[in-house]
């Protein structure tokens, strides 16, 4: 095991260094930055799509990033069972890419929300959250203007049937359907969430509720 986690860097990513610090400084794993034009994902245990404003969020959040060369390699990585975590803008990119269903839209209250919010763990099916118990309450920071998760009723039922709804807001801040804050794919190797686990991992900054999520990148 290489213990190396890839951190994708798009023009406009702004949480890439935070993520790398969480991975290296707090967990002791290795991080490797992946510029959006790179295509080599060999030797990586998992890949993180960090938060930010990829390509300025032009057109729609994640819409341009979806066509980045690194994401073509990522599709193969996912098909081969590789673990991919999309945080905030990374979640938006995963939905645009079609790796996760639905879409993230403008917060119902229109404001950019920067806060720390309580969340309920609603699935322990995947390795991402198996360290938690169903119904467990955690608190993670959020920082987004377009975090209102939207999908058709049909997709919502499918997510429920497949036990893919991983995290739900206790007090829905943005109008997301069914209070959804994070979902996984059916296979369970892709996880997208709006909250920032990498901002709740350093004891100096307070909360540590993001630690187990990032630790699970290595299946721990």
């Amino acid at each position: 095991m290489s213990n190396t986690i890839g951190v994708v860097v798009f023009p406009g990513s702004n949480c890439d260094r935070d993520v790398a610090w969480a991975i290296e400084g707090c967990l002791g794993f290795k991080a490797r930055y992946l510029w959006h034009e790179s295509t080599d994902l060999t030797g990586l245990e998992a890949v993180i799509l960090p938060g930010g404003f990829s390509y300025g969020d032009y057109l729609r959040c994640g819409a341009i990033a979806r066509f980045a060369p690194v994401l073509e390699s990522l599709l193969k990585f996912v098909n081969d069972g590789g673990k991919v975590l999309g945080i905030c803008n990374g979640f938006q990119v995963l939905t645009e890419l079609g790796l996760l269903p639905g879409a993230l839209t403008r917060n119902s209250g229109l404001h950019f929300i920067c806060d720390s919010v309580p969340l309920r763990v609603t699935s322990e099916r995947t390795t991402w959250l198996k360290a938690y118990k169903i119904g467990e309450l955690i608190e993670l920071p959020i920082a987004h203007g377009e975090g209102r998760y939207q999908c058709s009723q049909e997709t919502l039922f499918k997510l429920q049937d497949e036990d893919s709804i991983a995290l739900r807001y206790c007090d829905n801040p943005n109008g997301s359907i069914y209070d959804i804050a994070g979902i996984t794919n059916k296979q369970g190797n892709v996880f997208g969430l709006m909250p920032h686990p990498e901002r709740a991992i350093d004891p100096v900054l307070g909360g540590l509720d993001g630690k187990l999520i990032l630790k699970s990148l290595l299946g721990v």
Partner: peptide, 8 residues
């Protein structure tokens, strides 16, 4: 494929 996201 690009200008619109048919999901929304």
């Amino acid at each position: 494929r690009l200008l619109a996201n048919p999901v929304i």
